[in-house]
């Protein structure tokens, strides 16, 4: 478990990391990157699995079920859309296949 001050450090470092990643991005990648970051917060799926996994009452199970449903939608949808977009980027100069 992560708590208190340690969490505060994680919050801070993660904040700077996100800032650093974006500052060096060319405009042409803004939409794919927004889509990519949209996919990354799909990690909420893991949290939703916990919420449903530890549910005790029927109400909690119903809400937890919705959480997993939405979280899976975020993760899978975010991935598919980002991947489709990035698949199309190519240069006119043939610069050895990247993959």
């Amino acid at each position: 478990m992560i708590e208190g001050l340690a969490a505060l450090y994680i919050f801070m470092l993660a904040g700077f990391t996100g800032y650093e990643i974006i500052t060096r991005v060319p405009v042409i990648l803004h939409t794919p990157l927004m889509s990519g970051s949209n996919f990354v917060h799909g990690i909420v799926l893991v949290g939703a699995m916990f919420a449903l996994g530890i549910a005790e009452t029927t109400t909690q199970q119903i809400i937890g079920f919705i959480a997993v449903l939405l979280g899976a939608g975020n993760a899978v949808g975010g991935y598919v859309v980002t991947e489709r977009m990035l698949e199309m980027f190519k240069s006119s100069k043939k610069e050895g296949s990247e993959g």
């Binding site: 992560i2 994680i10 919050f11 904040g15 996100g18 970051s37 909420v44 949290g47």
Partner: peptide, 30 residues
């Protein structure tokens, strides 16, 4: 992203905190 990070703290899940806050700050700048 921010909400995911906060709920990550609630669940004590570091992956959620990091991924959520990274997206929160990157998204704010964007």
């Amino acid at each position: 992203g921010l909400a995911v990070g906060f709920e990550g703290y609630v669940l004590g899940n570091a992956a959620m905190i990091i991924a959520g806050i990274v997206v929160g700050s990157a998204g704010s700048l964007l």
